[in-house]
Write a protein that binds this DNA or RNA. Structure first.
Lengths: 155, 155
DNA sequence: TATTGTTATACTCTATAACTATA
DNA sequence: TATAGTTATAGAGTATAACAATA
């Protein structure tokens, strides 16, 4: 498996070429700006701050999310979560609530302003790239089904 | 278009749900670690440093790439490219070459060590997530074709 | 004793501004 | 005068270690 032959082999596998296209679409190729950081920047948030807002889905985390869980879910240190939360709290986007069951824990939840900013972010993030318009309705359905099969379990 | 109704509408559009799955697969969802930064970390590179190596494809940029082009392609400042290149050069991964045509310009090119590190990185990056194994050969071909249509022009 | 979160601190990442050399 | 790259510097992002409160 020499350095020269590996790429050729890879290109022949439709799974690999599909995956490469996905990386391009998402902004980890050469021509498109990375989507997630771009959305964050437009909303004056760092990517990780947007990550915090994102996890705080009001529909699923009614009571709030322990900071520790946010930290592990974002792959960053707890002390940094403290810092981000401080600043998001100053901007009145989230709030800390005591956990009735364990007084060490603080639960994070969105304020109304935070909810609406999160909504705007998800709307931007979830808008498919323009290339999707080149597919027919049926092709879009097929694509969605195939990807759902791929993503089952992780998505 | 209230904040509550928007997500429901989105879920009904197969284009949107396909795109959401893509975001999950790539690590911008909740359960998977972001792929690109992870690959970089495993190779002891920052994501942007990996970006530099990535652009320096020996097959397409024979003579080397001007630093200015690398900067704009990575959406970062030229001074930061200087810094990254300093450190990549210290690690003997890339080198600066004079541009015979314009003596202000420096061309970046991979050393042999840089080439092999880049190969390793691309091999990791281009390995599709495990979920792809759930597709038949024909499904993979279909997926690849549909995505190629979506990505045409940007990929 | 182990765990949640905070504080203090330091290190890495990245941009701005001023500068040098070339065009 | 304008452009490619560098230097010096400052600011954001992020981690480590020591600590307080609670379990």
């Amino acid at each position: 498996m020499s350095a020269k032959s590996a790429p050729a082999t890879a290109a022949a596998d439709p799974g690999v070429s599909a995956w490469k296209t996905i990386l391009e679409l998402v902004g980890w190729g050469e021509k498109v700006a990375p989507r997630f950081p771009m959305v964050a920047m437009e909303l004056d948030l760092s990517p990780k701050q947007l990550g915090v807002l994102w996890r705080l889905d009001p529909d699923t985390v009614e009571e709030g999310l322990p900071m520790r869980e946010v930290a592990s879910s974002l792959y960053c240190d707890a002390s940094y979560v403290t810092d981000m939360v401080d600043r998001l709290e100053e901007r009145d986007l989230i709030e800390r609530r005591p956990d009735p069951g364990d007084r060490r824990v603080k639960l994070l939840a969105l304020t109304p302003a935070g909810e609406s900013l999160r909504d705007r972010a998800l709307e931007m993030l979830y808008t498919p790239p323009e290339g999707f318009e080149r597919l027919s309705d049926e092709e879009r359905r097929t694509l969605s089904e195939l990807l759902a099969k791929v993503g089952a379990g992780s998505a």
